Computed example of a mutant assay.
Amino acid sequence: KVTYIYLKQLEEADLMVINKIDSLEETQRKSLRTALEERFPTKKVLEVSARSGAGLEDWFALMTSEKQGSADTMEVDYAVYAEGEALLGWLNATLELRSEEAWDGNAWMTQFAAHVQSQLEAQHHEIAHLKMTLSPEDGLGELAVINLIRNDFVPELSQTLPTDIHQAELIVNLRAEADPDALEAALRSALDAMNAGQGAINAALTHIEHFRPGKPEPTHRMEACP
């Protein structure tokens, strides 16, 4: 049922972008693109790598030169969609990190993400998306960003901080096939482990919300144009 949601999101898209092509073999790229083009023959498909920059100019040019067109009304089985949504727990959290001594924010966030991953894996909860953003208090716009999109991957830093820091804010966005309470428990356990093992760095949870999306109940539905 989660797959149903994913396929409906692809069906609704005007443009499909295959990212991280630098991490795929040529045969994998071709196979993925062929599968998308065969299933969604009216969609445009691009291949890009945000890391290397490959394909980005074509993508940006397309986004800035074309207007969004009107699409046919998409048929949605809201009962199946709701069941799929109910399988995913959502968690958003904010942490404040402080230390009198300068510390490596990239290393801290990588270790914290690995702790969260380990906690969820131990309970057999599949991660759909984990993203953390670390923003130093005096970073002048600099950020560290880490992502994880499945259990058998390793948390990957897509942006790093160039220098050690003293204070920062960490924002966590997590979606996984688990009860929302289980996501909170995993986050708190990971936080306890970090505070126990990183004595000089104090990490405090300042905000947390966890939930399951409600069942979509459309008030109005437009009929498909003839």
Score class of each variant (00 low, 15 high):
S31C: 15
L87E: 06
Q123T: 15
L15K: 09
V154R: 11
A168T: 01
V172C: 06
G199K: 06
T27D: 12
D22S: 12
L36T: 06
S99D: 02
E11S: 13
L170H: 00
L87W: 00
L62Q: 09
K8C: 02
R98Y: 09
D192F: 11
T34K: 15
V172G: 01
L95P: 00
T42D: 11
E12P: 11
Q9R: 14
L130C: 01
E101F: 05
E83I: 00
A190I: 07
D14E: 14
S189H: 10
S118D: 15
Y81S: 08
N151M: 14
N147W: 08
T219L: 15
Y6Q: 14
L148G: 05
R98E: 01
E121P: 03
H124M: 14
P155I: 09
E126S: 04
P41N: 10
Y4K: 00
D77K: 07
D14F: 08
T3S: 11
P162Q: 04
N202V: 12
A86I: 05
Q119E: 12
H220I: 15
E11A: 10
D164N: 15
I5C: 03
H115T: 08
A193Q: 14
H210D: 09
D164M: 12
K1P: 13
A61P: 09
G141E: 14
E142M: 07
